[in-house]
Amino acid sequence: MKSSKQILDREFLELRSKLLDLAASLDRIDRAEGSVAADQRMRLLAEGIRIIGNQSPQRAYQIQQLFSRQFDPQWKQKFNLPTRN
């Protein structure tokens, strides 16, 4: 397993490039006509960026959860789906 320093050395330029891509995409949206400020997807993107900035582990897991529909444990009753055992 490589060290943190080795991984940062290997991936720094790629990470820098991904940050620039993200910033440029948001700039592109801002430059375009109209406004998407009220679009729910913009709120999700902003929250995702906040998660990336956190020091907590499992950022990828947290972002996956952010973009996921909730699970309702009572879903079978709502679907009237019989239990089969």
């Binding site: 996956q64 959860q65 973009f67 996921s68 529909r69 909730q70 699970f71 309702d72 879903w75 079978k76 239990t83 089969r84 055992n85």
Partner: peptide, 20 residues
């Protein structure tokens, strides 16, 4: 896919558990 994956995966695991 995408936003449906987590919910759907949990539902699938629920249904599989119906079959001992």
């Amino acid at each position: 896919h995408l936003e449906d994956k987590y919910q759907g995966t949990r539902m699938i695991l629920d249904m599989l558990a119906d079959h001992p």
